[in-house]
């Protein structure tokens, strides 16, 4: 290769590129990443991909076992539940509830939480200590209990649960962004930028935000997996998505009485939750390691 360029040094790739290279060097993280992408695609195309309508009841085919059992058929790949509904279609449509709901809640709570945390960190003093006391109070309430409180006030239902999980996730975002912004504000390049005459908003947008990306991204993935878990747990406790909706947690709740006779009704949605949470966690772990590699290099 011709190396006779005027510049002696190799080009240093951008930070994003370095993170991507570090991330993609480990096979297991890429598997998790593509599983997640696949799930997102399934979520978006769930209307097309589901072989049957998730609510349609095949009355003559109750509790049909999955196709790998002797009695199962390929037409109903995951079998049917106690009302004759195709479980594969329900698991596919469930991505919209459990996964889609989780993404929605995490994005909304992330925007709100980061905004509050950043503003509180930029305006120090009394307000910051008030914020800390409020945060400690809210963080003392377990997130599931906080969600249950919101449900107690507003009544059960899918909308309420989305709101409840969003509210439960906000405090963590506030805490993470608050600490990260405070740490960045101590650095010298922020003082330089201030001397250059940046306003507070410019300072936040151009200097602080790119430098707190790492903890925020890691917090986002952690929040995503806990949102999936919380939504499914609330659905399982019959507080979330109501009966006919194919939410994974409430699908499992409706299969409890069939635990002995038809374990697949519970097992399959559970595996769906497990795989999605596992791949989210793996992607988070991979990102964390890639960022660490970046720091040590």
């Amino acid at each position: 290769m011709d190396r006779n360029t005027i510049y002696q040094d190799d080009a240093v790739p951008s930070i994003t590129k370095q993170v991507i290279t570090a991330f993609s060097s480990r096979g297991i993280f890429m598997v998790a990443f593509w599983t997640l992408i696949l799930m997102l695609v399934v979520m978006m195309l769930s209307y097309v991909l589901a072989p049957y309508h998730p609510q349609h009841q095949h009355i003559d085919l109750l509790l049909l076992p999955p196709s790998w059992y002797d009695q199962g058929t390929v037409e109903f790949f995951f079998g049917t539940d106690g009302l004759g509904r195709d479980i594969l279609s329900r698991v596919i449509s469930g991505t919209r509830y459990t996964l889609g709901g989780a993404i929605l809640t995490v994005v909304i709570s992330g925007i709100i939480g980061v905004a509050i945390g950043a503003v509180a960190a930029m305006l120090r003093g009394l307000r910051s200590s008030i914020l800390h006391h409020l945060l400690d109070t809210i963080l003392a309430i377990p997130s599931l209990l906080l969600a249950i409180l919101v449900i107690a006030i507003l009544g059960r239902g899918w909308d309420t649960v989305l709101l409840a999980v969003t509210i439960g996730l906000i405090p963590q975002f506030i805490r993470v962004s608050h600490q990260a912004v405070l740490a960045v504000l101590e650095t010298e390049y922020v003082r330089m930028a201030r001397l250059d005459g940046y306003t507070n908003f410019q300072l936040f947008y151009r200097v602080v935000l790119p430098n707190i990306a790492e903890p925020l991204i890691i917090r986002f993935t952690a929040a995503l997996s806990s949102a999936v878990m919380d939504l499914a747990a609330l659905g399982f406790l019959n507080l979330g998505a109501q009966a006919p909706a194919p939410e994974w947690g409430s699908m499992m709740a409706s299969g409890i009485e069939l635990l002995t006779s038809a374990p697949w009704v519970i097992t399959l949605p559970g595996i769906a939750i497990f795989i999605s949470v596992l791949s989210i966690n793996l992607v988070g772990e991979g990102l964390q390691r890639s960022f660490k590699k970046l720091e040590s290099s």
């Binding site: 997996s225 747990a233 499992m252 559970g270 939750i273 497990f274």
Partner: peptide
């Protein structure tokens, strides 16, 4: 273990 939904694990 971190990714197992606890209610599913309990039922299993």
């Amino acid at each position: 273990g971190q990714s197992i939904p606890v209610f599913w694990w309990a039922l299993m």
